[in-house]
Design a binder for these strands. Structure first.
Lengths: 267, 267
DNA sequence: GTATATTGGTTCAATATATGAACCGGAATA
DNA sequence: TATTCCGGTTCATATATTGAACCAATATAC
């Protein structure tokens, strides 16, 4: 199955930043043989995952994903549940809000909602997020399948974005533990010196985090009060999403945010 | 590349009607060995194209297609161009309107817009359309890449839906020629005894049809006048889509609908 | 305006890879 | 209680993938 694995891996190279690839370029980027790459691209093109420009011979994403996305959304809505929540959080915080889902050991955005103000954080709607440095990644690791956290920590080949980027297991774990304690993660200048990210996980039927919803605030605008409000907003929003897709958060999570159903402590 | 081909082929089984598959079931349906099927499903799951329910062990579509669809839409909008046009045609005709795109020798829906009236045609938003019997299929064959038409006609293994379903090359070609003459296709009871479909192709940069936009009308409601109006609506809509995605229709097509740019006959 | 490098694409022998029958243990079903 | 189904695993076999060398066509460099 190595072939299938590598072929699917090629799709990751098609992003908003580089939506088109020539054969040689892509083969080089993926460190694969040209002949092999071409054959894979052709098969995926035949299935509609890619399309080849007749003139330039370059490849770009095809329409098959659109169709699959529609089927998934029809039977198992996610985007339609997330969007209104994301918009509500954006309005409440007046900051860029984005949703991501974890796929294996990576975290990819599935939606962005931006406020109408002159200064705001820009989130590339297609670029993979650094799982060790972005708030979304940390929240996903904290509440996702334990094997994912283990896999990520086992090979800590972490890119350094700022002075505060966690670079080792010892750097990352405190963030994870903090997220587990509070029910949300904070990425204060770990990914970008000028940005504070706050993220909370939403869950699927498995009881592990499927993705996260996060708010990205310019550092200079962040305060203790604002952090509290933002955290509240993402935690509430994430809960709403979890329930909107017919799932329940883990007990651990409910405890962390102080809303255990069983214990009537709050009542 | 047979492996990749078969693995991607498995994704076709995930439709709105059967969004979930158990291993044995799917292997049987795809006529593949269980072990092979499982390995493919696992790889695709790892890449996020599928997700496995932890409890039932059944597979359903994952979130990776959502992400790819977003990237494609961000760099190469199609859905966002099609939707308003589709809605306008639906409003004008007051009938179910749907858009499809061709992928190789198949035609799959990418959008449906339904009128608010008690009787209307229902189009399953995920089921593949019969290329030989649906108006969309015929329009796609008429104006798509010639090799696609050849491939389809070479192996006329056509399902018979009604007494009027074209079943051979000799049955299909007149429909194709008619579509080429008029710039739109008509599927009068060829797919469903109670439905008349009218479809027009939209084009991509290659100059061949990328997909179609179609209106499905209950037979009893169809008249000569209504057919004329419907055809006009889909042809205009398809043109709008073609230009909306930055492409131009083929000269053949412009001639068929009597709007050659060069010849100022109409002016 | 000629030479060089790079492009997309093809070929074929070597071999790494996918395959599937038989097999598990467990859970429904009969 | 016996049988049939399920998801998943194993390992020898054979098939499909691989990639270096090659091609013609363009783009780039000089």
């Amino acid at each position: 199955m190595r072939t299938v694995d590598r072929a699917l891996g090629l799709l990751k190279y098609f992003t908003v930043d580089s939506p088109e690839w020539g054969l040689s370029d892509l083969a080089r980027a993926a460190r694969m043989d040209k002949a092999t790459t071409l054959r894979m691209l052709q098969v995926m093109t035949r299935h509609g995952f890619l399309a080849q420009d007749a003139a330039t011979r370059r490849f770009r994403l095809g329409i098959a994903p659109l169709n699959l996305a529609r089927v998934r959304e029809a039977t198992n809505p996610l985007t339609s549940v997330i969007e209104p929540v994301m918009d509500a959080i954006m309005t409440a915080t007046n900051e860029t809000t984005h949703a991501s889902t974890g796929i294996g050991t990576t975290v990819v955005p599935i939606g962005v909602s931006e406020p109408q103000r002159s200064t705001r954080v820009f989130v590339d709607p297609s670029l993979e997020l650094p799982i060790h440095a972005a708030a979304s990644g940390l929240a996903y690791l904290a509440f996702g399948e334990p094997s994912v956290l283990e896999a990520v920590l086992a090979d800590p080949d972490f890119e350094e974005f700022t002075d505060d980027t966690p670079l080792s297991r010892a750097d990352v774990m405190p963030h994870i533990e903090e997220a587990r304690r509070h029910g949300f993660s904070v990425a204060d200048k770990t990914y970008d010196d000028e940005v504070v990210g706050v993220a909370a996980p939403f869950f699927d039927q498995s009881g592990y985090a499927q993705g996260t919803i996060a708010v990205a605030t310019p550092t200079y605008r962040m305060s203790e009060d604002k952090l509290r409000e933002t955290a509240q907003a993402v935690v509430d929003g994430a809960l709403e999403i979890t329930r909107g897709i017919g799932a329940e958060p883990s007990q651990d999570y409910l405890k962390a945010i102080g809303r255990t159903q069983t214990a009537g402590a709050v009542a």
